[in-house]
Simulated assay, not measured.
Amino acid sequence: MLFSKLNFEGAVVKLQCNNTKYKLVQTHETDKNGYFFIEGPKSITSYAAHKCNVVLVSAPNGLKPSNLHGGLTGAGLRPGKPYVSKGLPFIVYTVGPLAFEPKCPR
C-alpha cells in the first residue's frame, strides 16, 4: 500500500513496479485534501518494493510536475512501520514530498 500527500486536488500519480516477474502500472488521482492511496496487488511483496517508484503524471490549475525528490524520474518508496491486520502482515509505503511548478509561457 502506498500513501502520500500532494497539495493539490486532482493531481494524477502513477505507481510503476518493474519486477522481472510481474509488471505493474497503476494511476490514481489525489483527493480534495491532496492525498492519494494506492493498494498494490499481493504479487508486489516487500522484497520487490525497491523496484517500484511513483511519478507525477499531471497537475491541475495550469501547473506541471517538477522533479523534486524524483517526481518526474521516479520517487522511490519508503517503507513505514510493519502492521498486522486480520492476521496478515502489511507495510504502508510513502513517497515525497513531490511538487509542481508553474508552466512558463514561451
Rank of each mutant, 00 (worst) to 15 (best):
G62C: 02
Y47E: 11
A11G: 06
V25Y: 10
S43M: 14
G87I: 03
S4V: 06
G62M: 03
V25P: 06
G10T: 09
G76T: 07
E39I: 10
L2V: 11
G80H: 12
G40W: 12
G62Y: 08
K32Q: 13
N61H: 09
Q16F: 14
T30F: 03
K5G: 08
K51R: 09
T20R: 05
A48I: 06
V55F: 10
I91N: 06
Y22N: 13
Y22C: 10
L63S: 03
L15W: 07
F37V: 14
Y93Q: 05
L2C: 08
E39P: 10
F8Q: 09
N33R: 10
T20V: 03
F90K: 05
K86H: 06
G71I: 05
Y22H: 13
P79L: 10
F37T: 15
K32Y: 11
N67L: 03
I44Q: 10
V13L: 04
Y93C: 00
L68G: 02
K64I: 00
K64Q: 09
L6W: 09
K64L: 05
P65T: 04
N19F: 00
S85Q: 13
L88A: 12
P65M: 07
N61V: 06
G87S: 01
L56I: 06
G40T: 14
N61W: 06
A59L: 09
V55S: 11
P89K: 08
G34H: 13
S85F: 12
H50I: 09
V13D: 00
V95F: 08
Y35D: 14
